[in-house]
Amino acid sequence: MRILKLLALAALLPACSGHTVYRFEVDLLSFIPENQRAGSLTVPPGGIQVLLPGQGGQPVSLPGAKALLDGRMQGALEVVNNTALRLTASLEVRVGPAGDQNLFDGDQDVRWGIAQADLNPNETRVIALDLPLDSSAPAVYTLVKSGDFRIGLRIGFSTGAGSVRYALQREDLTLRLKPFNLIPNP
């Protein structure tokens, strides 16, 4: 087993150096079925929320994630307020361990970030999210660094009367890894 590991490392390293960074750009939007990316909702009193892609989020498995340097998450959601009232719309990103079946109950999972905006009746806005992945979010950083995690989105609308249309335009997860960081001290 050890020999195998060694050979794999030796093969990986020719493409590698102290200045080589592996950048993974994951287009998470493409993993969400097309019919779920956009929709129209009637907002009941008390508000409503949409979980993408479902309660368990999207599992992400990244070998070698222990070499994580940093990363970022960028999202964009277009909202059209067709209700008669002022509406608050929010876009939230949550991360949990691979085994967590519900990313939105606060049990093991954490909030990476949230963006929200108030919309007047008939107003259209894009809610953008740009979250860094570094020491400013230690819990998220640890989860991502484990290499096996789940990531999910929550779109929320505050109380209203009428319908809203929403369309998720972007969900890009970028992770930068430096394999040389895996080399232990002598």
Binding site: C16, T20, Y22, R23, F24, E25, F31
Partner: peptide, 11 residues
């Protein structure tokens, strides 16, 4: 070695 190796992953 290349400075950067970029994996662009879509479904």
């Amino acid at each position: 070695s290349p400075d950067e190796v970029v994996f662009r992953i879509r479904s």
